[in-house]
């Protein structure tokens, strides 16, 4: 049975390289959003707007799950 992993391993190095780059760019973007969420949640909590902190945490945790999921699609090391 053919899986995406097998196809990925057989793909041209240029393709896997592009995929790797895309995943790294997505991770950087997600981490940037998380920094913004932490900054906003913290500042609002210190300003007594406590309602922001919990949704910010939920958003940040969701992004963490997405990031961990993205690691699954990292191309395998070449042999």
């Amino acid at each position: 049975m053919s899986t995406f992993r097998r196809a990925q391993s057989q793909a041209h190095p240029n393709k896997t390289s592009t995929l790797m780059l895309a995943i790294v760019v997505l991770l950087i973007l997600n981490v940037t959003i998380q920094i913004w969420l932490l900054y906003t949640g913290l500042n609002n909590a210190l300003e007594h707007n406590k309602g922001i902190a919990f949704p910010a945490f939920i958003g940040s945790f969701t992004i963490l799950i997405i990031n961990c999921g993205l690691l699954y699609y990292l191309p395998r090391r070449r042999r």
Binding site: A45, A53, F57, S60
Partner: peptide
């Protein structure tokens, strides 16, 4: 690969930080 994993670690740290802020508030 290592860099991507490191970014995930940073992501985990930021989520933990957000959890701390929410719990403190």
């Amino acid at each position: 690969r290592q860099f991507a994993k490191f970014l995930c670690l940073v992501s985990g740290g930021l989520a933990t930080g957000s959890a701390f802020v929410a719990a403190k508030a």
